[in-house]
Design a protein around this nucleic acid. Structure first.
Length: 463
RNA sequence: GGCGCGAUGGCCGAGAGGUUAGGCACGGGUCUGCAAAACCUGCUAGAGCGGUUCAAUUCCGCUUCGCGCCUCCA
């Protein structure tokens, strides 16, 4: 079945058909490494993770590029304030970013180019734009893109170009530009940049923001590629400007499809430091939530709908995940050491089908999860389950987890002495020595664990 | 002001022009030395006002409310 996505360019659903063979080449806007990324950032990366995982599930080959913006106003300011060279300063946050991706079980992209490693490629594009009359130099050594020279400017954001000229905010210090809406390809050297400086045919300076994405996508994906994604806030100006630069320089289509995810809110409000509802991933982990629970929260709302992040729903997720874990544990238990899988039971086949139909419809994750939980409900009724059937179900679970990334329960690391106590308690119960059994339960509780009796023996869970 | 998105049961959140979404919470039951968990089961909503239709929560219009972008925020 075909995979339909909502293309921001056409503002309508379209079937995703790669330009070449079965290979989807996608560019996903990545973090600016001036600080720890916040959960709003990870909402976007989570959407991209679901997208790439679904593409792979569908049998597409995927090449994903995600950039690391390691030179801009914020990184320069941070490095100056910390007294560290830019490279050392940003390295800390690059490392943190990759740690966070692991915590959230986000699959790595194929390429993570850093802006500072691609300066020559950026300069090459700007030179090309000069030869086409689509770049000009201003008095302060900056280079701008004249939007008047690109008639299609505004096609992604659907801008009213006439309205742009008279309206909106215009910074007062931009008198060097021919048109207030022109954007910087290259920024002339300013003393505030310290030693963050590169040589270029137009003199010393540093790249503008948008040019890095044009350069990196071209380097790894070619002049035209399939899919470009990011947060809605990137539609304008960032992606609009990328289109102008890339198509203006190369004379061919930049990206065939565009997908944008909505923002995340916290407690119904825009995340901001002044409201005190601004969270990095690390801060939420410190409150005792796991990466898996946060993954479930971030992935569970359709990407084009704003996601309201609350600790109440994070707690609800814990219960929902426990229900899934309980079911999967029963399935694995029933499968035992079975090595030959039987037929997938009809309820499981139905689950698989409905799940796929939902995800094929512009990544309708809520529909997919509905199918999953319906499957759990039917599956629970199907017990006791023979080992061949159970193995087939278990295999399906692994397949679905290749998309969801939260179905596999974390391995419990129970201290050995607690296991001994739990076993001693079983013995005490058998001997009807309930006083001793209760004493052991209390001791286990005191150690911060709970013990639950199940048909397959006692289970220890951390409180 | 311009462009765009949304409003569903206690909370979160889907699809479909007529037939159960789902999750959490809550009530009932099964199981159980106790307890917990688990499982089964119940809970039938769709901002307001008009319109189209045999039929609308679903399509159209208006209103109200919320949110986003409008030159370097995912």
């Amino acid at each position: 079945m075909s995979f339909k996505i909502y293309n921001t360019m056409s503002r309508s659903p379209e079937e995703l058909v790669p330009l070449k063979d079965n290979h989807v080449r996608m560019y996903t806007c990545g973090p600016t490494v001036y600080n720890y990324a916040h959960i709003g950032n990870y909402r976007a990366y989570m959407f991209e993770d679901l997208l790439r995982r679904w593409l792979k599930y569908k049998g597409f080959k995927v090449t994903q590029v995600q950039n690391l913006t390691d030179v801009d106003d914020k990184t320069i300011r941070g490095s100056r304030e910390s007294g560290l060279p830019l490279r050392d300063y940003t390295q800390k946050y690059k490392d943190a970013f990759f740690e966070d991706l692991k915590t959230l079980n986000i699959e790595p992209a194929e390429f993570y180019p850093a802006a500072t490693d691609c300066i020559p490629e950026m300069i090459a594009i700007i030179e090309k734009l000069f030869t086409k009359g689509r770049a000009y130099k201003s008095d302060d050594g900056s280079v701008y893109f004249p939007i008047d020279k690109f008639p299609e400017y505004g096609k992604l954001a659907r801008l009213d170009r006439e309205g742009m000229r008279s309206g909106a905010r215009v910074a007062q210090d931009e008198y060097d530009k021919e048109n207030a809406a022109d954007f910087a390809l290259w920024k002339g050297y300013d003393e505030a940049d310290g030693d963050v400086v590169w040589d270029s045919p137009w003199g010393k300076g540093r790249p503008g923001w948008h040019i890095e994405c044009s350069a990196m996508s071209m380097k790894y994906l070619g002049e035209t590629f399939d899919l470009h994604t990011g947060g809605v806030d990137n539609i304008f100006p960032h992606h609009e400007d990328e289109i102008a630069q890339s198509e203006g320089a190369n004379g061919c289509l930049y990206s065939k499809y565009w997908m944008h995810c909505a923002h995340l809110q916290v407690d119904g409000k825009k995340m901001s430091k002044s409201l005190g509802n601004f969270y990095t991933l690390r801060e939420i982990l410190e409150k005792g939530f796991t990466g898996r629970e946060i993954r479930y929260e971030l992935i569970g709302t359709h990407y084009r709908q704003s996601l309201n992040f609350t600790f109440a729903s994070l707690n609800a997720n814990r219960a929902a995940l426990a229900r899934l874990d309980e079911f999967y544990a029963k399935v694995k238990d029933a499968a035992g050491n079975e090595t030959s899988a039987g037929e997938l039971p009809s309820w499981a086949g139905e689950l698989e089908k409905r799940f796929a139909e939902a995800l094929d419809d512009d990544l309708n994750i809520a529909g997919g999860l509905g199918a999953l939980f319906d499957g759990v409900h039917e599956g629970n009724k199907a017990f006791p389950m023979n080992s061949k059937t159970a193995l087939a179900v278990s295999n399906l679970w692994k397949k679905l987890d290749s998309v969801l990334g939260f179905l596999m329960p974390p391995a419990a690391e129970v201290p050995a002495e607690l296991i001994q106590m739990a076993e001693a308690r079983v013995a005490a119960k058998k001997a009807k020595n309930f006083a001793e059994a209760d004493r052991l339960r209390d001791a286990i509780t005191a150690a911060g664990w709970t013990v639950q009796d199940t048909p397959t023996g006692p289970k220890l869970k951390k409180v």
